Amino acid sequence: MDERTGRTAGMTGPGTHAGRTGSPTEAFVAHRNLLFTVAYEMLGSAADAEDVLQETWLRWADVDHDAVRDPRAFLVRITTRQALTRLRTLRRRKESYIGPWLPEPLLTAPDVAEDIELADSVSMAMLLVMETLAPTERAVFVLREVFDLGYDEIAQAVEKTPAAVRQIAHRARAHVAARRPREVVSPAETRGVLAAFQQAVETGDLQRLLDMIAPDVVLLTDGGGVVRAALEPVVGAGTVVDVLSRLVSATLQPAQVNGHPALILRRDGRIDTVLAVRLENGLVAGLYAVRNPEKLSRIDRETAIGR
């Protein structure tokens, strides 16, 4: 496929035009939330996803729009290829990252939780599972399982044959299924646990914290070498509660982060940490604390995502 002309099998034909969605600018704007979400789910970084969108726009602006039959599919294709290129660079960067790496948290609108599949796909736990996929596997998984694209469309996006994409999708699906959280937890249950968790932290009730945390709980803290954070996963209820006991001086605020209930911690009015949780059997089994200031720049405003 030639990204300058947009000509590829199944994408061109007499009388076709990107104008079906309006002007090229209108087409891009109409699909922007989708494109951002594709890039974010592939990269786990809003800042990098925005860079990918900028590259997508530059390439889209240079396309022969008279030759494009389906602007949405074409834009997804450009975004996927740009994200794949950046993902390979990010993987090298993460190898030298100081301490645990966590996805950049996003403050999301309440209605994101209503789309259960979308909310699940952008959750901290799922994004970490997707980190274990190879770049092409991750792209195929996101496009197929989250956005329900056809194998032919995905094949054009990742430059593989449809048969190869089917095999990659099967392998990625099995890989994710073996590692993803097995229990579906309602937002209401998560909010209830977080409310009790918040009260226990604010009152310094360590026994109550112990009662709501799984014995083998794992706490991941991402400071990026910029702020204080554990350089290894913190494992075990007693050790984790000891860490949490230091949060008494912080102000905790409930929020909707990555489609799920979470807590934003502030110190002296400034955002210090975003804390997300994973529940199993009604107990907190995983805690994800993002403290790297570079990853908290967007958390004070909603980020629009969509399919």
Score class of each variant (00 low, 15 high):
203 T>Y: 06
208 R>S: 03
162 P>N: 02
186 S>Y: 09
165 V>M: 09
188 A>L: 10
163 A>I: 11
187 P>Y: 00
166 R>M: 12
198 Q>I: 00
183 E>M: 07
189 E>H: 09
188 A>P: 01
185 V>Q: 11
195 A>T: 03
202 E>Y: 00
202 E>H: 01
175 H>K: 14
174 A>M: 12
179 R>F: 05
178 A>T: 06
158 V>L: 07
186 S>E: 12
171 R>S: 12
169 A>P: 01
198 Q>G: 03
207 Q>R: 14
183 E>H: 08
206 L>E: 11
206 L>Y: 03
201 V>I: 15
175 H>N: 14
189 E>T: 13
198 Q>N: 02
208 R>A: 13
180 R>N: 08
194 L>N: 00
165 V>Q: 10
206 L>V: 07
171 R>E: 15
154 I>E: 04
175 H>D: 15
171 R>W: 07
188 A>T: 12
183 E>C: 04
179 R>N: 13
175 H>T: 13
175 H>S: 15
207 Q>E: 15
167 Q>W: 09
184 V>H: 10
187 P>T: 01
196 A>G: 13
185 V>G: 05
195 A>G: 03
180 R>C: 08
183 E>L: 08
207 Q>S: 08
193 V>Y: 02
174 A>S: 15
154 I>S: 01
167 Q>M: 11
165 V>P: 01
197 F>Q: 05
155 A>M: 07
157 A>N: 06
153 E>D: 13
164 A>H: 10
198 Q>H: 06
195 A>E: 14
184 V>N: 12
204 G>W: 05
197 F>A: 05
187 P>L: 00
158 V>M: 09
193 V>G: 03
170 H>Q: 14
160 K>N: 08
207 Q>W: 08
170 H>D: 14
184 V>E: 13
167 Q>D: 14
180 R>Q: 15
197 F>T: 08
206 L>G: 01
164 A>L: 06
192 G>K: 09
173 R>K: 14
208 R>P: 00
195 A>L: 06
160 K>P: 01
159 E>L: 11
204 G>E: 01
196 A>I: 05
166 R>Y: 01
191 R>V: 08
177 A>W: 07
153 E>I: 06
178 A>Q: 13
173 R>L: 13
161 T>F: 02
184 V>F: 12
155 A>C: 09
175 H>F: 10
181 P>A: 04
174 A>V: 12
167 Q>G: 06
193 V>D: 02
179 R>E: 12
162 P>A: 04
169 A>L: 06
170 H>W: 08
181 P>S: 11
189 E>D: 14
152 D>T: 14
177 A>P: 07
205 D>W: 02
205 D>P: 03
190 T>N: 03
197 F>P: 02
160 K>H: 14
168 I>E: 05
199 Q>N: 07
156 Q>C: 01
185 V>T: 06
190 T>F: 00
196 A>M: 05
190 T>I: 13
173 R>A: 15
155 A>G: 05
193 V>Q: 04
197 F>H: 08
156 Q>G: 04
177 A>K: 12
196 A>E: 13
161 T>Q: 09
155 A>I: 10
166 R>N: 11
178 A>S: 12
166 R>I: 09
204 G>N: 03
192 G>D: 15
207 Q>Y: 05
194 L>S: 03
182 R>A: 14
205 D>T: 00
200 A>Q: 02
186 S>G: 07
191 R>N: 06
181 P>R: 10
194 L>M: 02
201 V>N: 02
199 Q>V: 06
